[in-house]
Design a protein around this nucleic acid. Structure first.
Lengths: 145, 145
DNA sequence: ATAATAAAAGATAAAAACATCTTTTATTAT
DNA sequence: ATAATAAAAGATGTTTTTATCTTTTATTAT
């Protein structure tokens, strides 16, 4: 287990890939995405269906169909993907699993965790889905292996 | 799912509780620990058995037996508990699940994640198991609810 | 020695996460 | 209209995590 669930890792990698490959207005199919981000195709399909229903990504069926991102989606913060897939718990929940942990009723790690969580949240809120397109094109960053 | 597994959350809460209640050299039983950190007793027993085998906590069987911490254990960094239960992946693994993510072959979030992970690790390495005993005694911090 | 105590170990099970396969629906090109 | 395409939806299966219950072993007090 990492910071995010496996499901969420696939989701983020897929969204970055879709961003890179549909910036020109085209679409990309589930098979191509799955192969290029190294994820199980049918499992990823479920994940993307869900993101599509939530309006975080777009899709069309049929020939020339596939997944894509409109301008609004490209400028969304990455945190929206995390929230959609894993929920916002990672940004809010107590690091030790306490239900009522707060500054008034803190667990021993409350203050330290607050700092780490806030940094993570700020980072993911300031990154947009589309911002790595060029780096991906140049091969400076990668989505598989 | 939080930052840590549920198992790990129980482990950390239990270790803090044991620290608080055995600083005087006494022992505390699994039932009392489970009730006071609000965890399933038999499940927690498994977790503590494992920590005991690894030498991170101490235990003795029989009457007046239970779990406790020696001086060395009290001064251990909390990161040792995390490493023992969840493994060190949280400090090292790629945030997007890539196997070979590195500064030479980075995922899009590599540099940002490196920062967050390092902060988390530094924090957990600089906190000791015994350092909250007084705050726990004073009720300034809590381990349940 | 014996009985009582409490952790250790073993067996089993429920729930959630992860994954696959098949059928249906929407869209496009002919 | 028809056939081809590709996502959506449904059914099912596997693995891991979380959890419970029972039996065994070590220790202590009598």
């Amino acid at each position: 287990m990492g910071i995010f669930s496996k499901t969420c890792e696939y989701a983020v990698r897929a969204v970055f890939f879709i961003a890179q490959h549909t910036a020109d207005g085209s679409r990309v199919g589930i098979k191509e995405i799955a192969v290029n981000i190294d994820s199980p195709e049918h499992f990823l399909a479920k994940i993307l269906q869900d993101l599509s229903k939530r309006g975080i990504i777009q899709s069309v069926k049929g020939p020339n169909g596939g997944f894509y991102l409109d301008a609004q989606s490209l400028s969304r913060p990455l945190s929206d993907v995390i929230e959609a897939v894993d929920g916002g718990g990672i940004f809010r929940d107590c690091g030790l699993g306490l239900k009522e942990c707060s500054s008034k009723n803190p667990c021993p790690l409350h203050h330290d965790f607050l700092d780490v969580r806030n940094r993570l949240q700020n980072m993911l809120e300031s990154i947009t889905i589309g911002q790595f397109n060029e780096d991906l094109n140049l091969g400076i960053v990668v989505l598989k292996k």
